[in-house]
Simulated assay, not measured.
Amino acid sequence: MASQKLQASASNQLDDMQMDMSPMIDMVFLLLIFFMVASTMITQRKDPDVVVPIAPKGQDVKTAQGRITINVYSDAVMKKKGRNTPYADVNSVELTREGITRLVEKERLANEQVGTKSILYVRGDQAAIVQHVKTVIAAAAKGGVNDVIFSGYSRKVGQ
Rank of each mutant, 00 (worst) to 15 (best):
K156R: 11
Q113F: 15
Q131W: 08
I100F: 02
T135D: 08
G66A: 13
D147Y: 15
K156I: 11
N91S: 00
N71D: 03
N71C: 02
R67H: 13
V130I: 09
L120E: 02
V157I: 13
D89T: 03
K81Q: 10
Q13T: 14
M27I: 00
D75W: 13
P48T: 05
V136L: 09
V133F: 05
A138D: 07
Q13L: 13
V145M: 10
V50S: 01
R83C: 05
E105D: 13
V50N: 00
Y73E: 07
V28M: 02
I137P: 04
L103S: 07
K5G: 11
F29A: 01
F35G: 02
S9C: 08
M36T: 05
A128Q: 04
M21W: 00
M17H: 10
K142Q: 12
A139C: 06
D125G: 00
N71M: 03
I100G: 01
R67K: 14
Q44S: 07
A141C: 10
V50P: 00
I149Q: 09
G124P: 02
I70K: 06
V28H: 00
K62S: 12
K46A: 06
V50Y: 01
I100Y: 01
T135S: 10
T40Q: 10
D49F: 07
Y153N: 06
D147P: 14
N84T: 09
P48Y: 05
T101Q: 09
A2D: 15
Y87A: 01
A128H: 04
D16Q: 13
S3D: 15
L30E: 05
K134D: 08
N111P: 14
Q44K: 09
S3F: 15
T69C: 06
A55G: 11
S154N: 12
V50Q: 01
I129C: 03
K156A: 11
A141L: 12
E107M: 15
A55P: 11
Q18N: 04
M41R: 10
D47Y: 06
Q65N: 14
T96N: 01
E94C: 02
V136K: 11
N111Y: 15
L14K: 08
P23R: 01
M21C: 01
K156L: 11
V145C: 08
T63W: 15
L6E: 09
K156V: 10
N84L: 09
M27V: 03
D15H: 13
Q7Y: 12
K5R: 12
Y153W: 08
D60Y: 14
M41T: 09
T69A: 04
D20I: 00
L6W: 11
V122N: 01
Y73D: 07
R45P: 06
E98T: 07
M41D: 07
R123V: 04
T85I: 03
G66L: 13
V52F: 07
A38I: 08
N12Y: 15
P56N: 11
S74H: 08
F29Q: 03
L109F: 15
K134L: 11
G152A: 08
G66R: 15
M17T: 12
V136N: 08
R97K: 06
I119Y: 08
V157H: 13
S22T: 00
V28T: 01
E98K: 08
L30A: 04
L32D: 06
V52G: 01
V136Q: 09
A139T: 08
S3N: 14
V61W: 10
A128R: 05
H132Y: 14
Y87M: 04
L120W: 03
G66W: 14
T101S: 10
N84D: 09
N71R: 05
K46N: 06
Q44N: 07
I68R: 12
M78F: 02
Q159T: 14
K142W: 12
